[in-house]
């Protein structure tokens, strides 16, 4: 049974996927004579919960571990410790038949429309793969009908013009739609969209975002939307989590994250987003800032401590725990203890 948690008074919602203290280290060996090994903690005790019928946004800069988290959730990458609970079952040890069953329920939409479709496989063959693997009982005609229905659902009409095409005959936007069709054709419970619009032209992004919103509205899909673009993320997401160097620092409803960011990192992130309004020109006085490179080496400290203007002694002694500062607004920062 899915674990049931209380949300918004008497409304009860269950979670599709949740993680507990998920941790993953990457070890880089370098040096030829003196072997040094440097540990980078890509996931640092990540704890989150994605509910049914929810689009959960995950934002963070490159190297923050958001893609690693996505891969870990779909069991495309092993983690070092922690738990992943999917539909109430701990999937950490899944292999073989159990893993196959899990695969049937999950899918992914990729960032790069050019390399997420095999150049030598036709659109039709590409998108029906999940059906053929998980539903061997379907007749050829049923598969075809489902394919046509799905292709038209992602806005490619008439479908027969596309079935036969190869990826190099399609534009970036069309490829991305095919990628979405492949992800949803088998009606999975949980989809991860990893930067699905960042490689598309600005004018094509909106339609892809609207397709994702439609999928949620019509079919109640749970989705994790990974992006570095906050404006795009808040457009599709119900809730947003902010990730910094492997740690989740803040989770709240989208509009709360945007309008009332609490963690100092979230604040600087929201502040840096360009707004299409020339009256909001940037203040040039803050240009003195130095950039330096930090990695999460797995110490028990706040990952933002090295850059935070409000850093306190506590921040380096022990990493701050998530705390519900206002309703459904979790922040991991000692400023709010």
């Amino acid at each position: 049974m899915p674990r049931v948690i209380s949300m918004e008074g008497d409304l009860m919602e269950s979670s599709t996927i949740e993680t507990n203290e998920l941790t993953k280290d990457f070890i880089n060996k370098r040096g030829i004579i003196r072997r040094e090994s440097r540990t980078t903690r890509a996931l640092d005790q990540v704890k989150l919960q994605i509910k049914e019928h929810e689009i959960f946004g995950l934002i963070g800069e490159s190297g923050s571990g958001k893609t690693t988290l996505g891969l870990a959730l779909l069991k495309l990458m092993d983690v070092d410790s922690g738990q992943i609970i999917f539909n109430g079952n701990n999937i950490m040890k899944y292999t073989g038949r159990q893993l196959f069953g899990f695969r049937e329920k999950t899918q992914m939409i990729f960032q790069d429309p050019y390399s997420s479709l095999n150049p030598v496989i036709s659109v039709y063959k590409s998108i029906v793969t999940p059906l053929r693997v998980f539903h061997k009982e379907l007749k050829e005609e049923e598969v075809l009908n489902k394919a046509i229905e799905t292709i038209e659902m992602v806005g490619l009409t008439p479908a027969e013009q596309f079935l036969n095409k190869f990826p190099n005959q399609l534009s970036g936007g069309q490829r991305q739609r095919i990628g979405i069709a492949r992800a949803v054709i088998n009606n999975p419970d949980f989809i991860i969209a990893d930067e699905p619009v960042s490689m598309l032209d600005v004018s094509l992004r909106a339609d892809i975002l609207n397709i994702l919103l439609d999928l949620k509205r019509k079919f109640g899909k749970s989705m994790m939307f990974i992006s570095h673009d906050i404006a795009v993320t808040q457009y599709v997401s119900d809730r947003i989590a902010v990730m910094h160097l492997g740690q989740l620092v803040e989770v709240a409803k989208s509009d709360r994250i945007i309008n009332n960011p609490m963690h100092p990192y979230t604040k600087s992130l929201i502040d840096s987003i360009p707004v299409p309004d020339p009256k909001k020109k940037w203040n040039l006085d803050e240009s003195k800032g130095q950039i330096s490179e930090y990695v999460n080496e797995g110490k028990n400290e706040c990952s933002y401590a090295n850059k935070c203007p409000f850093v306190m002694d506590n921040c380096r002694k022990e990493r701050p725990k998530f705390r519900e500062v206002e309703k459904d607004h979790l922040v991991a920062c000692y400023l709010y203890e």
């Binding site: 495309l76 196959f100 790069d112 390399s115 095999n118 496989i121 793969t129 693997v133």
Partner: peptide, 24 residues
């Protein structure tokens, strides 16, 4: 390539991926 990952997510096993995605 991501399309190999997509094939894994679609439940194909190693040999199937080699034959379907890699060899061609």
């Amino acid at each position: 390539r991501p399309y190999i990952m997509a094939s894994k997510l679609s439940g194909l096993n190693g040999m199937q991926i080699i034959i379907r995605d890699i060899l061609p």
